[in-house]
Design a protein around this nucleic acid. Structure first.
Lengths: 127, 127
DNA sequence: GTAACCAGTTTCCAAAAGGTAAGTGCTTTA
DNA sequence: TAAAGCACTTACCTTTTGGAAACTGGTTAC
């Protein structure tokens, strides 16, 4: 999903619509998806929140991610103020990724997705 | 996000990892994202749940969606047993899209995303 | 002194997602 | 009888996403 700005342009709601509450749900959901959808963003946030704070550590903790993709996604997450990148002036330099307090607000989203994903897997495997 | 099967192959978790609980979160989240991520799936589910049941009606209720994309996404959602397509044997044929009971289980995910999206928009617009 | 680790970047490419525009076959409305 | 609506499909194209592999420039461990 392309992010032209920081929020989604949903256009004007159709006029004369008897279901305008529909847009009151769709618009915020699209704003949220714009930030967190895609294959890697939430997995990265989860990994960092679980104590994987170094680049190679995050990379190893997320199956099949490549360094190129990780590098790009970390930059996106920084732009959205969800992850902070700290460089320590050591020899050699150490780089640490941490969640911002703002990222903690995603907890309920992650929990909802985790629980739905768990029951979905059970359903598909034919519990 | 490509869906080769119905569930994500996350590979084996790294061995000797002190943060294995990380995978217990990442895997179900990726299973869930595999079904619902992308720009249109949740907006379509929301629209249908709000009483937009005909093709053109859904199309009009979601800003900027095109009939090509809507057609494709509806098929995906049918495959995932989230939407049911019913054809009425009238002249001309009427087609109705409804949510399956299973789709109702996504309610908590939608609510979590809606609320996060709402506060995110407020934050970005500099409340 | 060479192999390995760190934190990435670069290049090249394929696949997936999404947009534009037009068209199809049917029916209903003005 | 022409215009418009319904439920789509098709062809073509651009953008986005993702993957493989090599490489950089440093440091540390053996």
């Amino acid at each position: 999903m392309k992010s032209t700005g920081l929020l989604v342009d949903c256009g004007a709601p159709p006029t004369g619509d008897s279901h305008t509450d529909c847009h009151k749900v769709i618009m915020p959901v699209r704003d949220a998806l714009d930030v967190i959808s895609g294959k890697w963003k939430l997995p990265i946030i989860i990994a960092v929140s679980r104590g994987h704070n170094r680049f190679r550590d995050i990379e190893r903790s997320i199956p099949k991610i490549t360094s190129k993709v990780l590098s790009k996604e970390l930059k996106d997450l920084e732009t959205h103020k969800l992850i902070r990148r700290t460089v320590y002036d050591t020899q050699p330099v150490q780089v640490e990724y941490t969640l911002t307090p703002y990222a903690a607000t995603l907890e309920s989203v992650i929990v909802a997705l985790q629980q739905w994903g768990l029951q979905h897997r059970k359903k598909i495997l034919g519990k």
